[in-house]
Nucleic acid binder design. Structure first.
Length: 178
DNA sequence: GCTATGATCATA
DNA sequence: ATGATCATAGCA
């Protein structure tokens, strides 16, 4: 939750350098919207029902990616935030295209599609790549806003969604930007 | 083994 | 409001 706020404005980079591949592919986007999921105390969190093959990474060391497939067609990217043994993550909901993005990154599904992130990146170390989160080179000032979470039924009213107020790339069915 | 379902999005 | 589409979880 501290992390969710801190991630706003950071640069999400995916350098897709395949061994044996010819040229390096990479893309970068500025995070403009995040959503926090607490651990076993949060009914909306995947970790709520305890450790499973899918959620084990949530209980692992922080700084790792938790990627899963939703609705059979979209991926969601999370950052594990809590210490090893404790669950907790931040869902990256939207980003502003920064470089080499193909298409929009407004929304969890679109974001992963634009950055070409999939199940292969699950449990990968976000400090070592291929997917990394970096400090912005030129930091623009912005105002952080908070709102209820989106797209869930349980505990949706929790004010755990953070976004950059007024940013055009923030997602939300109702265009919640301020 | 089998079935229900979802932290979504595009289309009508 | 509905459909696309499949990994996961829960149950038999």
């Amino acid at each position: 939750m501290e992390v969710a706020r801190a991630l706003l404005g950071k640069i999400l980079v995916h350098s897709d350098t395949g061994p044996g591949r010819g040229k390096e592919r990479w893309a970068a986007a500025r995070i403009v919207e995040t959503e926090a999921y607490l651990g076993t105390n949060d009914p909306a969190a995947h970790a709520y029902r305890g450790v499973t093959p899918r959620t084990q990474v949530l209980f692992g060391p922080p700084g790792h990616a938790y990627v899963y497939l939703i609705y059979g067609m979209y991926h969601c990217l999370n950052v594990v935030t809590e210490a090893d043994g404790t669950a907790g993550c931040v869902l990256i909901r939207a980003a502003e295209p920064f470089a080499n993005l193909n298409g929009s990154a407004s929304g969890p599904g679109r974001l992963t599609r634009a950055l070409r992130i999939d199940l292969a990146h699950n449990a990968s170390d976000l400090t070592r790549g291929p997917v990394t989160i970096r400090e912005p080179a030129t930091s623009e000032k912005f105002e952080t806003a908070v709102s209820p979470r989106i797209g869930i039924r349980e505990a949706a009213d929790w004010p755990l969604r953070f976004y950059i107020r007024g940013n055009l790339h923030v997602s939300g069915p109702r265009g919640v930007r301020d």
